[in-house]
Amino acid sequence: MSTMSSKQRQHLAQQGTWRRLPLIASPGLRWGLVLALAVYLVLAFASVEVNWARVAEGASRGMNFLSAFMQPDFVSRWDDILAGLLESLTMTVTSTVLGIALAVPVGLGAARNIAPLPIYVICRSIIAVSRTFQEVIIAILFVVMFGFGPFAGMITLAFATIGFMAKLLAEDIEDLDWRQVEAVRATGAGWWQTLNHAVQPQVMPRLIGLSMYRLDINFRESAVIGIVGAGGIGATLNTSISRYEYDTSAAILLMIIAIVLLSEYSSSHVRRWTQ
C-alpha cells in the first residue's frame, strides 16, 4: 500500500482518499525500525530494577527537599558556603583563562585548512581525549596526581576547556571565508600576518562569545568536581546532601542558579558589545 506510484496516489486523491506519505518509504525498513525500538524499550525497561519499597520510603524525603527550597537555610553553614563559592569562582576564572590560552594554538593546529597534517593529527587527538571524558573522571586522575584541592580542579577545568574551545575554534576556522584569506595573502603577507589580518577578525566575535559560554560551563562544572576532592562548592554540597541537610543544599543550589543567571545575563551584554 505504501509503495504505490504517484499516479495511483493521484487517482486515489481524486476519489477523496489520501494519506500522508510515510517518513520512511520502504515498509520493511519502517516496521523493522518500529519493532527494533519496541524490543529495545522492553529490554531496557526490564533491566531497570526499582526497589519500590525504597522509593516509597524516600518519598517523604523528597517532600522535605521540596519544602527546603521554600525556606533555604543560608545561615548555619554560611562560612562553608562562602568559602566553597569563592573557591569555585577562582577556579572558574583561572581555568577559563588558562584553558583558552592553550586552546587557541591547539585550535589553530586542528584546522585542516591552515595546519600541516602531523600537527593536525596531534591536535585532533588532544581534542578527542579532552572531550571524551567527563570532567569528573579527569578530576579523579588529577586529584591523584596533584593532591586534593582547587589546583587539581583548576587543571581539570582547563583541560576540559581546551577540548571544547579548540574544537569549535577549529570548526570556525575551517569554514571561514577563504576569499578574505586569499586577498590578504595576495598582498604578500606571511603566515602570521595572514592569521592576524584575515583569520582573527573573522573568528574573534564568536571566540569571545564561546569564551563567555565556557566560563559559565566551568562554573557549573566546578560545582561537581568537588565531589571527588577537586575543590569548590561541590564538596560542601555533597556533605550537606549526604547529611540530609536539604535546607543548606537548597541554599547552595539557589546560589548556583543565581550566579549562572547573572553570568548569562552579563555574557549576553558582552556578546552584544563585541559584535
Binding site: E49, N51, R54, G58, G62, R220, N238, I241, Y244, I257
Partner: peptide, 25 residues
C-alpha cells in the same frame, strides 16, 4: 529551563539517590 540548566546531572543524581535510593532509576 534555567534551574535545570544550572544544576549538573551529577548533583541531580546525588539528590535523587538520597530520595529514591541508589540505582538506575
Amino acid at each position: 529551563i534555567v534551574s535545570s540548566r544550572s544544576i549538573n546531572s551529577l548533583i541531580w543524581a546525588m539528590l535523587l539517590v538520597t530520595i529514591l535510593g541508589p540505582g538506575v532509576l
